[in-house]
Write a protein that binds this DNA or RNA. Structure first.
Lengths: 138, 138
DNA sequence: GTAAATGCAAAGAATTTGCTAGCCC
DNA sequence: GGGCTAGCAAATTCTTTGCATTTAC
């Protein structure tokens, strides 16, 4: 007896998860779509969006939202931080231990119950920093 | 002699800034539009968007991007943190001193030059937490 | 068998852009 | 007066949705 609202395992969902888990970039829905299409030419963009939504609701992936207009997705659903290059928009994971003490500190500052936090750093990636220095030298 | 690319002071820009500075909510572009229209019925949405963009590029306001589909804006351009209620989406400022040491710590973890960071907390606001407790009691 | 998921296409929402006219400095 | 801006509307971009059909369990 399956519970109502059971999430089925479909070929599409598997491929999507697989694609996400095998990339270190933090792709957009459309990038995922292009990749999945290589294995399943008839997959539809709607299916990609529906699955990305389901997966993130079930905590299997993370939806990220940076300054840009579209969402990005990350197969690493664990708490971790990101770095975003302001010049080329590349996103990198930061392997830094989560700081839960931040939440305690913040909770003392206002009247709310904190359940999580997001921390992002921005600046210049190694490549863009190098280019900037070369430009300055001229 | 004005520098090329000089940013002009227009009535529209003034009203937009004024509206933003006189609210504690963190409004969407459309909310700003509705407010500005009360003072300038003929203002166009395109003007709102163009000005919000210009203002944030010049560091006079901050563009915020949370999980939702649209951007929100904050007239407080200083470094500060936010709390977002997961239930009602209300956004509150957190009056907590910025922690620049986070940036130093993160910079040691990867090969990039950090210029800033964003920190958001999410959970339940006082109102929603109260409602949740009442629901549980039944 | 039945609810959930897919494909396809059309709809929706948020934001951007092209163009002409107007206003700021 | 020259160029940045505004207004207006059309165009883009990203995402969601309706519906008939297929699939997982």
């Amino acid at each position: 007896m399956k519970p109502k609202g059971f999430v089925r395992k479909t070929k599409q969902r598997e491929v999507i998860l697989d694609v996400l888990r095998n990339t270190t970039c933090h792709p957009t829905a459309d990038w995922v779509y292009q990749e999945v299409r290589k294995q399943m030419p008839h997959v539809s963009l709607g299916t990609i969006y529906r699955n990305l939504k389901t997966l993130s609701e079930h905590g299997e992936i993370q939806e990220l939202c940076f300054g840009s207009t579209h969402s990005r997705f990350d197969a690493n659903a664990h708490q971790h931080y990101h770095f975003v290059c302001e010049k080329c928009d590349i996103i990198e994971d930061i392997h830094m231990s989560a700081m839960d003490e931040l939440e305690q500190k913040a909770e003392q500052m206002g009247d709310f119950k904190i359940r999580g936090h997001r921390l992002e750093f921005y600046g210049l990636c190694a490549q863009c920093a190098k280019e900037e220095n070369m430009a300055k030298a001229n």
